[in-house]
């Protein structure tokens, strides 16, 4: 580890001290806003009653989480969360890699720059603005709604048809993130040493062969890292997407409710913090287990690609 053996240890001490100092502000912020709240996890095991206060409220063990699992909605929201995330990860990663490879094939710099800029547009809008945009297409006066009627079809009410939402939400999510993620992969491709490509060219490989045998394999570590990180969040969802875009229409809950929005709404209607904390904890723990597991699997397959 020690790469500079000729520096005396007092220097090392000073160096480490100064480096620690540089890290300190962020260290403290993370401590306060990420680690301190973990101290409140015990709330998940209590039946909170305000006359006793949070600390003196009775312990109820796993009662809160049991309450969640006996509700109508537990399986529905878990299913929604997982299915959406699996689709998002699979389709999103695939398309992003394809886009990155295609970007790498674009020869004219001006085109490349234009595409990169435009692809980033959706990433710039907050979910609220995306919700407004979606509304301008599928709302009661929306462009799509109007067209459907003009073309002579029966009028279609997007906000009360459950079956379109899985498709819509997937499209919107991928639309929003594609530019961003594909440029991360594109940067990854640029990081691949040119020697490989030159060697391939000398060997007379076709573009597709180059992509299949050089670009993709060398991009694999990055793809794995990005996927592992997404898998770590598989029990979480983008709150904004599921909360704002379907505009909180109750009828759509069966296909738009995910764990995050569910916890938020439960808190909103019942104010039961014990239960919402329990669900939050469940989310964290499950996510953690999933990451450890998939990291283990990756490690078994290819030790180089593991996250830690």
């Amino acid at each position: 580890m020690n790469k500079i053996p000729f520096i005396p240890s007092s220097r090392h001490f000073k160096k480490n001290l100064q480096l620690s100092l540089l890290a300190l502000p962020a260290f403290l912020i993370i401590f306060v806003f990420s680690y301190l709240p973990m101290g409140g996890i015990f709330i998940a095991f209590k039946n909170i009653n305000y006359s006793d206060g949070i600390l003196r409220s009775p312990w109820v063990g796993l009662e809160n989480i049991k309450f969640f699992f006996t509700s109508n909605d537990a399986w529905m929201v878990i299913r929604n969360t997982l299915l959406y995330n699996i689709v998002f990860i699979a389709v999103g990663t695939f398309l992003s890699v394809v886009f990155a490879i295609m970007l790498n094939e674009v020869i004219r710099r001006s085109w490349l720059k234009a595409y990169q800029t435009i692809f980033f547009f959706p990433y710039f809008f907050s979910w609220i603005i995306v919700a407004y945009m979606a509304y301008s297409f599928i709302g009661p006066y929306g462009i799509l709604t109007t067209w459907i009627e003009k073309l002579g079809f029966e009028s279609f009410d997007f906000y009360s048809e459950t079956w379109v939402w899985p498709i819509l939400l997937t499209l919107i999510n991928i639309w929003k993130g594609l530019g961003y993620v594909s440029i991360i992969f594109y940067a990854g491709i640029l990081g691949i040493s040119q020697e490989y490509f030159e060697a391939a060219e000398i060997d007379g490989a076709s573009r597709l062969q180059v992509i299949r045998n050089i670009t993709v394999p060398l991009l694999m570590p990055l793809i794995t890292i990005m996927t592992l990180l997404s898998i770590g969040k598989i029990f979480y969802s983008d709150f904004g997407l599921f909360f704002f875009v379907p505009r909180e229409v109750g009828q759509l809950f069966p296909v738009t409710q995910v764990i995050d929005t569910y916890v938020y709404r439960m808190l909103k209607v019942s104010g039961d913090i014990g239960m919402s904390s329990a669900v939050g904890l469940f989310q964290s723990v499950m996510g953690f287990i999933v990451v450890l597991f998939s990291n283990y699997v990756v490690k078994r397959i290819d030790d180089d690609n593991k996250l830690f």
Binding site: S160, G250, S270
Partner: peptide, 24 residues
């Protein structure tokens, strides 16, 4: 019955607007 009430309220939230607007 506060747990049951919370669950019932959540059910109501899902449906009432549809009843209100006759789309159920």
């Amino acid at each position: 019955v506060k747990g049951e009430i919370a669950k019932a309220t959540a059910v109501w939230d899902e449906y009432y607007r549809a009843f209100n607007l006759g789309v159920s």
